[in-house]
Computed example of a mutant assay.
Amino acid sequence: MLHTVSLKENHVFRRLYHRGATAGNRLLVVYCLRNGTGHSRLGLTVSAKLGHAVERNRMRRRLREVYRLHEAELLPGYDIVIVARSRAMEADFAELTRAFLTLAGRTGLMQEAAQ
């Protein structure tokens, strides 16, 4: 990923959940908040309720790839958390992509939305 690092600290996740802009649909929920740096930080959340470790890790890889492919279209300098919902486990890659891009547009992460 070009200008993105992983988001790992629990306090940052909690800050995003409470203060960040939120958008959700039937597959995903996206939280975002400006972080004041020149790079974005990405956090992925897939609950243990959604399946065994192999399935959860597959979902994380798929979400990371959706983000990676569209990173250039997103504004830099944001903390982003993507939360997978249960229906996302059965969704194909194209559905996940559409869901993410829709939510990114709603939260103001897309570059063309900011102009």
Results as ranks from 00 to 15, higher is better:
C32S: 15
G24L: 08
R85D: 09
L28H: 01
R15S: 13
F93E: 12
A99D: 14
N25D: 15
F93R: 14
R64S: 12
A99V: 10
H52D: 13
T22N: 08
R85I: 06
A53H: 04
K49W: 04
G77E: 05
T37C: 08
L63V: 05
E71V: 02
R61T: 02
Y78D: 05
L63W: 00
E65A: 14
D92R: 12
L16W: 01
Y31F: 15
K49I: 03
G38K: 11
R61W: 13
L75C: 10
L44W: 08
L33I: 01
L75G: 02
A23H: 07
V81S: 09
R26F: 05
D92F: 02
F93G: 07
A99L: 03
R34E: 15
E95Q: 15
L103T: 09
A48I: 10
I82G: 01
A88G: 09
S47P: 06
C32P: 03
P76W: 02
R60W: 06
V29C: 01
G24P: 03
M59F: 07
A88I: 05
V46L: 01
R68F: 01
G20E: 00
K49P: 04
G77H: 09
Y17N: 01
M59W: 07
E90Y: 08
V66F: 06
E95Y: 02
L96V: 11
I82A: 05
R64Q: 09
L16K: 02
G43E: 01
A53V: 09
Y67N: 06
R58M: 11
D92C: 09
H70P: 03
I80H: 00
T102M: 09
L101M: 15
L75R: 12
G20M: 07
E65H: 14
M89F: 06
